[in-house]
Amino acid sequence: MKNILKTKELGIGAILLLVCIIITLINPVFLTADNLADVLKANAVLGILAVGMTLIIITGGIDVSVAAVTSAVAVAIGHLMLYLPDHPVSLVVVFAAAVFAGTLLGMINGFFIVKFSIPPIVVTLGTLSIISGALLFITNGNYMSGANFPEVFTAFSKYEIFGISILIYILLFFSLITWGILKYTVIGRSIYAFGGNSVSAVRVGISMKKVQYFIYGYMGFLAGIAAVTQTAYIRAVDPNGLLGFELTVIAAVVIGGASILGGNGSIAGTLLGTLLLGVMQNGLILARVDSYWQNLVTGTVIILAVSYDHLQKKRIDAQTAQIEVK
């Protein structure tokens, strides 16, 4: 499996490199340190959510409520921050509250998926509707300015280590953790097993229920982290800012080589997929392409990436078959 994943990731990496070269040729500004750091920072939220989505997609599930959950948590911490004093502990409180709220919402998804065996897409479509509806009702769609947030939060959002935004470190940190979970824990291997053959997984004694609670709960947890990151990035709360963003998240994972039918996927691939989307968007801006065209390009890339993947798989399958027939 490693070999296939390696070639898969290598393929995405090559495309990424190619896109980078083309953009640099069109507009050399792309290759400046500032611009690259901006691209990373702008896509930290996408990356964090895509990392969580990777686990779900590996099991063959899906969560279309992530963007709504992230927005809901962002609104919650936005309101919370109005009452918090300007003290470092406030930061801890914000993170704790965000993670708690996110995990809770994720667990609600998990509960319906596990308890009533409802397909994940149906459950999360439901929660997506409920959460966005409730958000609209509560906020009236109103934007919350960051001017009233505690000073310490603003400082945090501007904080840099070696000239790199803290938001990028957050993404890297949680990517690393998630990679470790996938590679070095029983639950990580169970996630792959579940996606590969759920019937066999039950036969060897893997608890599907626990795995599903974990992945949807963890997705919620990361949505909490993403909510803090998003609020720090725009220094405001926009309840409609992430409308439809779940599709971009799923796109990043799929471009990263995960099979939407489950079984395959990796954190490295997902990060590359995220970068590819981010770089292309940045490139289109730098090339002064109308922003309306961006979705069109994204869609094309998804279809190309996935077709390439399937062709590759078909070729390998054909090879195996030939050997058997002779």
């Binding site: 291997r189 590969g196 053959n197 060897v204």
Partner: peptide
Amino acid sequence: SLFPNLSVAENICIG
């Protein structure tokens, strides 16, 4: 009852 996506080693050891 094998896992097509997992390696031989993992298939043997899972569980």
